[in-house]
């Protein structure tokens, strides 16, 4: 089977986010960028399915300016076979991204699409589900286990209060949660090899998708900082403060 993995270029998760002085957005100038951690898990899962003989081809796709090719090369170094960049000037919103991915799905005809459950920049948690609705595919979101059967996939999902398992007919959408797997590091030989793997570029126009944005970003602020309180000397003082000062006991 063929697996399509959608990946996003985001700020590296180790970088401290700063808001621009004019509060128009966060400042991403000269900031280290990386593959979104949930997308990395998605690539890893697809590659493992290929290594297990379940999948025979893993295609990665990313939407955005030329810089996203860096993350596509990372995905290729992790084991994906080929890459598609859908070139846009900036990052589209989730609905436009889902429409673009629908175009790619129609062209590639994958049996499974794996995405991260959310990107760590906008934290929307939407694209996979939207792609499901647009393509009519069933979805297994927040996956912690993926087991492929004959024409179906069982997905164990992390839900509030525990785990839920659903059975989905293929083709299906899977979005990854953190504990699905632990992604490998790309080895140097694989990084070298990735440079020669095919990377094709297309555009929303070619896929017949109009990119629009209906949510306007008015302002970005730094959240109210909590200030450090007091240090207490011992348990007695702690219990006393909680009872008599904070009045929470």
């Amino acid at each position: 089977m063929k697996i399509l993995v959608a990946v996003k270029r985001v700020i590296d998760y180790n970088v401290k986010v700063r808001v621009k002085p004019d509060q128009s957005d966060v400042d991403l100038a000269n900031v280290k960028m990386a593959l979104n951690p949930f997308c990395e898990i998605a690539v890893e899962e697809a590659v493992r399915l290929k290594e297990a003989g379940t999948a025979d081809e893993v295609v990665v796709v990313s939407i955005g300016p030329k810089a996203v090719q860096e993350q596509l090369r990372t995905a290729l170094a992790l084991g994906a076979d080929r890459a598609i960049q859908v070139e846009t000037d900036d990052m589209p919103d989730s609905l436009s991204a889902a429409k673009i991915l629908k175009g790619v799905v129609e062209k590639e005809g994958p049996d499974m699409v794996i995405l991260g459950k959310q990107s760590i920049d906008s934290d929307n948690n939407q694209t996979g589900q939207m792609l499901g609705a647009l393509t009519g595919m069933p979805q297994g979101t927040f996956a912690s286990k993926v087991e492929v059967g004959d024409g179906f996939v069982n997905v164990t999902r992390e839900i509030d209060g525990g785990l839920q398992t659903v059975k989905l007919n293929l083709p299906a959408i899977v979005t990854t949660d953190l504990r699905l797997n632990e992604p490998r590091y790309a080895s140097l030989p694989n990084i070298m090899k990735a440079k020669r793997k095919p990377l094709e570029t297309t555009s929303p126009d070619e896929l017949g998708v109009e990119v629009k944005r209906t949510i306007k970003l008015l302002k970005v602020e730094t959240p109210a900082e909590r200030s450090a309180g007091v240090k207490v000397a011992d348990v007695d003082e702690l219990v006393d403060k909680l009872k008599n000062e904070a009045k929470v006991l």
Binding site: V17, V26, D123, I215, L217, L218, K219, E221
Partner: peptide
């Protein structure tokens, strides 16, 4: 957004 490290004000059209 950004894991709560920034707060966005957004307007839906």
């Amino acid at each position: 957004i950004y894991a709560g490290n920034a707060i966005a004000t957004v307007q839906s059209e």
